[in-house]
Design a binder for these strands. Structure first.
Lengths: 119, 119
DNA sequence: GCTTTATATACCTTGACAAGCATATGCCCA
DNA sequence: TGGGCATATGCTTGTCAAGGTATATAAAGC
């Protein structure tokens, strides 16, 4: 089984998801609005469906697809531990930088790979 | 350039990120704690670094890696529009299901692909 | 029943990427 | 300065997934 992260790694799938945020859509609607060949849409919808990101309803010859919240919540849960790095204060990074040294450092030359970000 | 989503799609990279949440780590520490061959660690760190997920400090022969908040925030931003589906009420799904019909439905047979989830 | 519309699937090709292994680079210390 | 430790990089290979094209399934309407 594929992780939720791999599912949304694909740009077309993210586009489909974003489209479904406003309301449910048929395959044909998605196809037209995203200017994407129909088999491509169907295949991505299949992946999304099997991963639980969307569900479908039969409407005559059409299938209406809509979002399901659970897998997105899983992504959100993974992000949670990292959220403290930016959500609390502007200087969250600074606090992080000060919480160092459980390694065995010798000299600390402190040559940063990047310039210190000015938030 | 690669999207932040593709970067974190790789399980080993997510493991490294999670490890760095507690504090910065040297390559050797990551290698031992995740039981991962050293070249593998270095290569993933390179990907993470070039995508802005981590930055490094030179400490003699070691390189200390630590997290950077920005790219994760980007992920969080993408998730934001979907958050209304679960964060507000228990019946967020229900409300979504009721906000339908901008398609041209004919009969509405309502054969759900899955059983209606009982939250 | 036949045609049209809507969606799904099968097959093939191609590209991307991760792992494994070997090797290079760089720094420390005796 | 030579050897050992820490990390980075090069090369090769196997795998997997996405796109393209064609075709299958199924319902609608005449």
């Amino acid at each position: 089984m594929k992780s939720a992260f791999e599912i949304i790694a694909e740009p077309n799938r993210r586009a489909i998801m974003s489209l479904l945020v406003s309301s449910q859509q048929s395959v044909g609607q998605i196809e037209r609005r995203l200017r994407m060949p129909q088999p491509t849409v169907s295949k991505h919808l299949r992946v999304l469906r099997e991963a639980g990101f969307v569900e479908s309803t039969v409407d005559a010859q059409r299938r209406l697809y809509r979002l399901r919240p659970e897998p997105l919540q899983e992504l959100d849960d993974w992000l949670a531990p990292f959220r403290r790095f930016w959500s609390s204060h502007v200087d969250a990074l600074e606090r992080h930088l000060d919480r160092m040294d459980q390694s065995t450092p010798t000299k600390k030359k402190e040559k940063r790979t990047r310039p210190k970000p000015r938030t």
